[in-house]
């Protein structure tokens, strides 16, 4: 038995027939070929598969594609606009927030959920928000810095850019 679903992924509408047991992460990766979302532990622990479903951070290995019917989904591929990196992506780049990079898409999507609700999170709030995302390389230090970088940039985008341009 397959079920028809309509989902909006990174602004594009997709209509597909899927088996009910197809996990959302495999729908994104295998059907839509959006391989930026990773499968890490596959047991809802590590957070590498985190995406936004209707704006909420979601472990896509613990959701069926059929449950996402009529939902709006954002994956890491939907973060940059017109080739310009999202402040979080820029933060991870600038602050050396990744080493192997496997956890990065999930970290960024979870952090995006945090920054939507909390424009100026404290270090402690950032660490608490990322408790469902594992990183084996960085010791989390530079990930926290990357999120702080993005929070600063997003709360004062113009001033920051001018300053940076002036420095160049």
């Amino acid at each position: 038995m397959s079920t028809k679903i309509t989902v909006t992924v990174n602004g594009a509408k997709h209509i597909d027939k899927v088996e009910p047991r197809l996990l959302l992460v495999y729908y994104l990766r295998d059907v839509l070929k959006l391989t930026g979302t990773h499968v890490g532990c596959d047991t809802s622990s590590c957070g590498a598969c985190t995406i936004l479903v209707d704006g909420k951070a979601t472990k896509s290995c613990t959701m069926l594609a059929v449950q996402a019917d009529k939902c709006k989904i954002t994956t890491i591929e939907g973060m940059a606009t017109n080739g310009e990196l999202h402040p979080l992506q820029e933060g991870f780049n600038q602050c050396h927030g990744l080493q192997c990079g496997f956890c990065t898409p999930g970290m960024i999507m979870t952090a995006a959920d945090l920054l939507k609700n909390n424009k100026k999170p404290s270090e402690e709030q950032i660490r608490a928000a990322l408790e469902g995302n594992f990183c084996r390389c960085t010791g989390y230090h530079n990930i926290v810095k990357a999120v702080q970088y993005a929070a600063d940039k997003m709360s004062a985008p113009r001033a920051r850019k001018t300053k940076k341009e002036a420095a160049l």
Binding site: C41, T43, S45, C46, E123, E124, I126, R127, A128, L130, E131, N133, F134, C135, R136, G139, Y140, H141, I143, V144
Partner: peptide, 17 residues
């Protein structure tokens, strides 16, 4: 044998270094 039992340290287990 899974992360439900094997404990990986998380962001909130550390301070800044």
């Amino acid at each position: 044998a899974s992360y439900m039992d094997y404990c990986m340290p998380r962001a909130d287990d550390f301070p800044m270094f």
